[in-house]
Design a protein around this nucleic acid. Structure first.
Length: 281
DNA sequence: CTCCTGTCCTGCCGGC
DNA sequence: TGCCGGCAGGACAGGA
């Protein structure tokens, strides 16, 4: 589920609970998620103070006072719950990893499908770690532009949709937001990446930034509402213009007073693509 | 190299 | 009601 906006929202939500706190207890309910937990994970974390939280691509980075970075990836179904000191707490199904903080707060990683990852990396070596070395630029950062994309996509015969989801091209954009950004910028998702004009790539980069920023803003407010209910971070419902809207009328066509449902679904490399058959060329 | 397919795992939803 | 197939937002290995 989580793409950049969800990961960013979870990271921001965790920050006030974790920053400056000492990790007193580490509970591992199994020995792996998608990959094994590091053998000495508990020893690396126990007694350490959290310096800060940040995000790179879809990874949450928790930097500790021993030069270790705890890396958390939510995979498809990962979520993080915060249980306050005075709240009841019992381990539920699919709770795999729990941090007990000095404040009494518990941080709980829950992941039914276990496609997520939790590992540690030396802070100084993080750029060389295999999960990070090949990553493209952050879409909301300075390294991401139409000219960058044009160069990067040169000679790429795969579809523009698949190219944008490739984390080596640009990070953080998954199946949902690529559909939304291609829709907003009016680009056919099946178009070959190298055939998309610079002009269209300008629109696309703008749309990618726009849909991600909008989702982050929505996540922030939804998160507050949701947290009051049960302390969950990471699962919140956005409204999408085309994603999961097969057979309905998209906002552009609605505005143009077209009546015929325009949103279609197709499979690209086994993933669903939603798009407007009338406006995306 | 690039590109595509299959795979990890559980839950849920729709159809029969 | 129960069973079954298909599908799910990520990342990576392996093969063509």
């Amino acid at each position: 589920m989580p793409e950049l906006p969800e990961v960013e929202t979870v990271m921001r939500g965790l920050s006030p609970y974790m920053q400056g706190e000492v990790i007193e207890r580490v509970i591992l309910k199994r020995k792996d998620l998608r990959i094994p937990f590091p053998k000495n994970l508990s020893q690396q974390l126990q007694g350490r103070r959290v310096l800060n939280l940040s995000r790179r691509a879809k990874y949450i980075l928790i930097t500790l006072d021993n030069n270790v970075v705890l890396v958390v990836h939510l995979g498809m179904s990962g979520r993080v719950d915060v249980v306050e000191a005075e709240q009841d707490f019992q381990i539920r199904k699919h709770d795999h990893f729990i941090l007990g903080l000095h404040s009494g707060v518990r941080i709980i990683y829950n992941d039914p499908r276990r496609f997520g990852m939790i590992f540690t990396v030396d802070q100084k070596a993080i750029e060389n770690h295999k999960s990070f070395a090949m990553l493209g630029p952050e879409p909301l950062g300075n390294g991401f532009s139409a000219t960058y994309l044009k160069e990067k996509l040169k000679g790429k015969k795969q579809s523009i949709k698949q190219a944008i989801m490739d984390q080596r091209v640009v990070v953080g954009v998954g199946n949902i937001y690529v559909c939304e950004a291609l829709y907003e910028s009016g680009i056919d998702p099946t178009k070959k990446a190298h055939e998309v004009s610079l002009k269209k790539l300008e629109n696309l980069t703008r749309s990618i930034r726009h849909v991600l920023r909008k989702a982050i803003n929505a996540g922030g407010s939804t998160l507050n509402d949701y947290r009051q209910a049960d302390g969950s971070l990471g699962y919140f419902q956005h409204h999408f213009k085309v994603y999961d809207q097969e057979g309905t009328l998209c906002p552009k066509c609605k505005k143009a007073e077209y009546k015929k449902p325009c949103i279609r679904r197709l499979a690209q490399s086994g993933r669903s693509t939603y798009y407007c058959a009338r406006t995306q060329k």
